[in-house]
């Protein structure tokens, strides 16, 4: 362990140089292996086709949806409008963005399908959208998981049998069953019921995304609860006694003395749990949430470039998880005591 370097014979500079070099060599060997492997498979690599799924930047046409004279061309706020009046006198407005170019003038006759205007489409591609959904779902589920986990962890060590047994049952059931099944149950059973009830009272249904977040938060909460419990119990009992002997209530002592100390210790296991959560969010594709994995799968079926896209997908997950790791390390360093 790095902290205890002084306990053994001091290592010379050569030792560190040698092993750093070995590390670099091992990395290069790994890259070389994959290079050779990738060039030996019967596969045409087309990395240049990947960027279009990140950002769409292409010309798009606005085509006439009816046949008739172009009667009006004007601006409506940020957009431009081209109105086509058909033989029966009905007006058909066509909108295109303000910076697009209108290719017809008033009085022209337009056939159905004629290009009326053209503009540059410039928006995030499906992969970026998927990445965003994954990020959104993960952040919400992490927040939910922390809240559920802390509450359950506290119930777990409560003397109230209802709270204690309730939390144990929750933890065991959630940890012991497959996440995929839980997601199905939340969406198709609980979700159907809740949406039916909401409709009954005249409210709109809840989108699948929220059921997904709920399933992930409850799943993570069970693990966080055990981590929190272990963290609380690792704080020396003298701390609780000192706080209580000053007249603080159980809740005050927990909030001001025990939990702050526990949280510093459970940061690393929590980070591991949240990294798992980010990857587990890939299961949400089964309830029609188009997160990163589902987005990738869709792109693969249209592009027929599976290798590139799955590699890109993995790298994007890595970016998310690594960012989280760095963030937690930063928090840990800030709260060093």
């Amino acid at each position: 362990m790095t902290q205890y370097r002084g306990l053994d014979k001091p290592k010379g500079r050569g030792f560190f140089l040698f092993w750093k070099a070995m590390f670099v060599a091992a990395m290069l060997a790994l890259v070389a292996f994959f290079w050779v492997a990738s060039s030996s498979v019967e596969y045409i690599w087309r990395w240049n086709r990947v960027p279009q799924y990140f950002w769409v930047n292409e010309a798009a046409d606005v085509r006439a949806e009816a046949e008739g004279d172009v009667t009006i061309i004007d601006r409506q706020g940020n957009e431009q409008r081209v109105v086509v009046r058909d033989a029966s006198g009905e007006e058909h407005p066509h909108m295109l963005p303000g910076e697009g170019t209108v290719l017809v003038s008033t009085g022209d006759f337009a056939y159905r399908g004629d290009v009326l205007g053209r503009y540059q489409l410039n928006k995030p591609g499906i992969l970026l959208e998927g990445l965003w959904i994954t990020l959104e779902v993960s952040v919400l589920a992490i927040i939910g998981g922390i809240v559920i986990g802390v509450v359950t962890g506290l119930c777990r060590i409560s003397i109230n049998p209802m709270l204690r047994w309730g939390s144990i049952a929750y933890i065991e059931i959630i940890r012991g069953s497959p996440l995929l099944v839980q997601i199905f149950l939340w969406y198709f059973v609980v979700g159907t019921l809740i949406n039916a009830l909401l409709e009954h009272v005249g409210l709109g249904g809840i989108s699948p995304l929220w059921y997904g977040v709920m399933a992930l938060a409850l799943f993570t909460g069970a693990y966080v609860a055990e981590i929190v419990r272990a963290g609380i119990q690792s704080v020396h009992r003298g701390q609780m006694e000192a706080a209580r002997s000053l007249g603080m209530s159980y809740a005050q002592a927990m909030r001001k003395v025990i939990l702050p100390q526990a949280f510093r210790r459970i940061m690393p296991p929590l980070a591991g749990q949240f990294i798992s959560l980010i990857k587990d969010s890939s299961l949400l594709g089964v309830i029609a949430i188009r997160e990163l994995t589902k987005a990738t799968r869709e792109v693969v079926t249209t592009s027929l470039q599976p290798f590139e896209l799955w590699i890109v997908c993995a790298v994007l997950y890595l970016v998310l998880t690594f960012t989280l790791s760095l963030f937690v390390q930063y928090l840990e360093r800030r709260a060093i005591r």
Binding site: G238, Q239, A242, S245, G247, M248, V257, R264
Partner: peptide
């Protein structure tokens, strides 16, 4: 809790709050 506030206790192992400064240890309660 009211009674405990009237009766101070000092432990063999100090039991100071390690995440708080000395002054914060004194002001918390």
């Amino acid at each position: 809790n009211e009674v405990r506030a009237e009766v101070g206790m000092v432990f063999q192992s100090f039991n100071l709050f390690p995440h708080l400064t000395v002054l914060e240890n004194l002001t918390l309660a």
